[in-house]
Nucleic acid binder design. Sequence first.
DNA 1: GAGCCTTACTTCACGGCGTGATCTAACTGG
DNA 2: CCAGTTAGATCACGCCGTGAAGTAAGGCTC
Lengths: 403, 403
Amino acid sequence: MTARGKRTVRDLRRGSRSILLRRVYFDGPISRQELGQSTGLSAGSISNVTAELLADGLLEECGSVESDGGRPRILLRVPPGRARLVGVDVGETQVRVALFDLALTELAASDHPLTDGGHDVGQVVAAVLGGLDEVLAGTDPATVLGVGIGVPGIVEQGDPAADGHGIVVHSQTIGWDAVPLGRLLRAGTSLPLYVDNGAKTLGQAEMWFGAGRGARHAVIALVGSGVGACVIVDGARFRGATSSAGEWGHTRLHVGGRRCRCGARGCLEAYVGAAALVKCWGRAPAGADDKAGLAALLGAATDGQQAAVELLDEAAEYFGAAIADLVNLFNPERIVIGGWAGLLLGPRLLPGIRRSAARHALRFPHAQTSIELGTLGPDAVTVGAAALPLSHFLDSGGDLTQR
Amino acid sequence: MTARGKRTVRDLRRGSRSILLRRVYFDGPISRQELGQSTGLSAGSISNVTAELLADGLLEECGSVESDGGRPRILLRVPPGRARLVGVDVGETQVRVALFDLALTELAASDHPLTDGGHDVGQVVAAVLGGLDEVLAGTDPATVLGVGIGVPGIVEQGDPAADGHGIVVHSQTIGWDAVPLGRLLRAGTSLPLYVDNGAKTLGQAEMWFGAGRGARHAVIALVGSGVGACVIVDGARFRGATSSAGEWGHTRLHVGGRRCRCGARGCLEAYVGAAALVKCWGRAPAGADDKAGLAALLGAATDGQQAAVELLDEAAEYFGAAIADLVNLFNPERIVIGGWAGLLLGPRLLPGIRRSAARHALRFPHAQTSIELGTLGPDAVTVGAAALPLSHFLDSGGDLTQR
DNA sequence: GAGCCTTACTTCACGGCGTGATCTAACTGG
DNA sequence: CCAGTTAGATCACGCCGTGAAGTAAGGCTC
C-alpha cells in the first residue's frame, strides 16, 4: 500500500517507452502507425518517444511497407546487437552459461559439470563465474544488460535495492539452506544479477517464445525427475509472498497414498515424476539414470508390457487430476506441459491426461482451458534465465544507465 | 498488452487521489504529514490533492494532534455519511439486501426468503429489486455509489463498459446456466452493479475488516455446506482468466476416494463440507438442516462418541492437507478459515488442521504462513458485497460522476 | 511529368502534473 | 511577548500527452 503506481510525470515517459519497446520487441518489425493503434498513444507521442528510442539506439528503422497510395509506413525493430544477455542454468549435474543477443540468439556457451549433484555451493559459484569469464571474453561488459540465473530451489529476492546481495536460495533436494547466492556471486562480478527458480525461468521462456505465447493466465507444468510449475498471472510470473508459489510437486493427490521421496505420502510427484516412475517400475537397466530409465519404461509400454502400460495409464490419470486442481484453482487459459520427462511422456500420455482432467475439473473452468505440450525443449532454461534481465530492461523502458 | 498502466497526466492525479483516499479511509483519521511520509508524495502534492478532496466533500478535517512544540497536525477522515453503498447476499435460502454508509455501518436491511433454494432466477431478481426499493426508501439515489451482489456461483464479468449487461452467472448447485443476471437487474434499477461470487465477497470483507487485515497475499478458505476459497494476490481478489479461480472445494485429495455430491470422488468437499460430514455421520436428528446437523455432530464429539470423534479427526487431517496444497501453490502470508461451518468447526479442529498442514506442506512456505479463524462471522457477505462498489470508488480516486 | 490525392509522420501550443524551495500559520516554551 | 519549531500552502519550473496543424513521401490521373 506504499509505493503503488507511478508518481511523477517523468514516470509516464518511462511507461510509454516501456510499452513501445515491448511492442516493437515482441511484434517484430512494426510501423509507428500500428504502434499508435495498438497502444492507444497519440501519434504525437509515438513520434516523440520513438525518436528518443532511435537516438538511444534502442530502435532502428528497417524497410517500409506500402499503405494504400499514401506515404509508406516505416518499419521499426529492436537492433538485436544493441546489447547482450547472459543466461545461466544451474542444474544438479552441470552449470550451463550462455551469452545471447537481444533476439535471444545464442552467441556463446560454456558447460561446467558438477561432481557432487550441486551440493557444494562453492563449486557452483566457481562454475558460474568461470563460465561468465569464458562466454564474455572479448565482450564489452558495458553492453551486457545482466546475468539471469535459474536455480533448483526457492529464491528469496530480498531487497531489490541491495544490488543482489539479498538474494537467498533454499533447496531441500540439493541441501541448500539459506544460501546467500547473491552475495557470493557479487564477489566475482559486477554485472546485474537476476536469480529465480529454474522452473520459473523455463516457464518464462515458454510464455514468451513457446507454447504459452499470447496467454495472460497460464500454468507451465514441469515434469523432470520431480514435478514443478510456473504460474503466470496477468502475464507475469506469480511469486506469492516469499517467491515459493507454484510448488506443485507435493500436492496431496491421495492422502495416505504412495510414499514420495519428500517423506510424505500421495504427492503428485510420487505418481508422475520420472524418478518415482522408474523406481516403481523397477525394471530399468542397472545403472541407467532417470532419463534412460524413463525411455526404457516408455519402450516397454509401446511393446505392450502390462506393468508398464498400467503404470503409465495410472500416471496419466493422476496427472490429469492434478491438472484439474490447477484449472479449478487458477482458472488459466492454457496449461503447458514441459520439462524433459513431460516432453518425453507427453505424446503418449496427453490424450489420457486430457480425458482425466476433463473428468476431474469443474465444467466451466475446464471449458476455458487448453492443455498442450511445451515447444521449447528442456534446454530453454538458459533462454528463460536470460529473459530475466531482458524483462527488467523492457520494463525500465530501455534504461541502459540503470542496468 | 494493450492499455497497460496510465496514459495521460490527468491519470496521474487520479492515481494520487486514489492513493490518498485509500490511505485516509483505512488508516482512520490521519494528518497530511503522515500521509506524505507513507505515500511518498511531496508535501506540495498532498496539500494540493487533499484540498481538492476536501472541496469535493470526500475528506473532512476532524480535530488535531500536537506535534512537539510546533503547529499541530490536522487530522483528516472520509465522512461516513458522504455516500451510501448497497450490499446484497444471494443465498440458497434467502436474499438479504443491506444499505451501508461509507464506514460500512448498516443503515437498513431487508430479508426475502426464497422458496425453491434459489433455482428460480425470476424470484431472486424480484427479491433483490424489492429489497433495493425497501432499503433505499427515502434515500437520494444519487448518493448511492452502487450495488454489490454476492451470488453462489461463477461470475463472468463481461465487458466492463457494457454497464453491467455483460454480467453472467453460472452455478451448478442451484442450476443457473449462463444466467444474464446483469441484464435482468438492469431492467429494474439504474444504480451501478457489481456482482461477484459470494465466497469472494466474504473474503474481501475478511481482508479489509477481519482476520486478513494487513496481508498482501492470503487465502480465505470458506467452509459451509460446500467448500470454497477466495485467493488474494497482491491485495486484490484473484480471478483468473474467466473469474472462476479459487474453486477449491473439488480439489482431488484422494483419487478414487469418497463420493462427492459433484459426482466425482475424493473431493475436499466430501471430507470437510458440512453437508458431507452430516451425511457421513448419519445420526443427525431427522429433518435437521446442515447447520443443526453439524452442531449435533460437534456435540456428539464433545461427548466423546467414537464415530463423531473419528469423523472430525479425519476432517481435520484432510482439511490440513488441502490447506498445505494452498500453501505450496500460493505461498500466502495467511490462511483464514471462514464460512459458517468453518467457524463452527474451527475451535475444535484448528489444532489438528495446523498439525496436518505442517506435516503436508513444504517447510519453507509453511514457515511463512499462519492459519487463523475468520473474525467476521458468516453474515459478512453483505459487507463484502458492499465493498465491491466501495473498492471501485476508492480506485477511481473518489469520482462521484463516473458511478 | 505536373498536379492532386492519400496516408505517415513531425511539430507545436496548450492544459495539466509533481517537485522542491519558499512562504505563512499555529502552537510551545521561556 | 518573542523566538523556535513544525504543519501546511503557494508558486515557478520542467516535463508530459494531446490534438490540431503542418510537412514528407508515395501513387494516380491526365
